[in-house]
Amino acid sequence: MAFVKDLTPAGNRRMGKVLSVLGALALLVSLWLGAHRILFYVYALEAQGTLRAVQGETLPAVEFRTIDGKTVLFKPEGRGYDSQYIGKRVDVVYSETQPQYAYINTVTQLWRDQLVSAYVSAALLLTGYLTLRGHLEWWRSSFD
């Protein structure tokens, strides 16, 4: 069986190297996303927004006024707010040059992508390390 052949110590080392490289790449993506978001947050402007109902949508959008008085409506990422929150006031951070790219000023809205990427990279790096060190022998033995 080709699958069993890949579970040799050499196959484990190969798999460990692949997982470690994938983990390192995911870590680089996480760091890049984090740096990008930090730069956004440093230069972002703050405003008060209100959750509004949008015709034909099940999730509300956020409406806020920019510093120059322009009204902007954007849809927040994720499912943190539903229709029961319509009318609620929220803090918003936005780019002065592109106010349509705004975020509700919460940890989950601002840092979700970076946190998910960091968790994935940590899991891949740990699995790659354990595979390289031979600590996943119990998994390999379950196929014999």
Rank of each mutant, 00 (worst) to 15 (best):
G49S: 08
Y43P: 02
A47D: 04
F74D: 07
T127K: 00
A10N: 10
G34Y: 09
R140L: 01
N12H: 14
Y81Q: 08
G128D: 09
I104S: 04
S30T: 01
S20T: 14
L22R: 05
E57I: 01
H36Q: 14
L39E: 13
E46C: 03
K70C: 04
D6K: 14
K17H: 10
R14C: 06
E77I: 00
P76H: 07
I38H: 10
Y85H: 13
N12G: 15
L115M: 13
W32T: 09
Y94L: 01
A47I: 02
S83N: 12
K88R: 12
A102H: 03
K75F: 13
G134H: 04
A10I: 09
A118K: 08
R133I: 05
H135I: 06
L115V: 14
A53I: 00
L115K: 07
V93R: 12
G78D: 08
Y103V: 01
V29C: 14
K5V: 00
Y41G: 12
Y81M: 08
G11D: 02
Y43T: 08
D6N: 14
T58Y: 12
I86P: 07
K70M: 05
Y129W: 13
G69M: 05
L130C: 13
I104K: 06
A47K: 00
H135E: 15
G56K: 03
R13C: 06
D91G: 12
L33N: 09
T108I: 12
L7G: 02
P76Y: 01
E77T: 05
R133L: 00
R37S: 08
V18W: 10
R79G: 12
G80V: 05
E46P: 08
L45A: 13
G69F: 06
P60K: 00
A44C: 04
T58A: 11
E46K: 13
R65S: 14
Q109G: 15
A2H: 14
P99A: 08
K5A: 13
R89V: 12
D113Y: 04
Q84G: 11
A24Q: 03
A47F: 00
Q109R: 13
Y129M: 07
L27W: 05
Q48W: 05
Q100E: 15
S30Y: 05
L27P: 06
L25E: 03
L22Q: 04
L27F: 14
V72S: 07
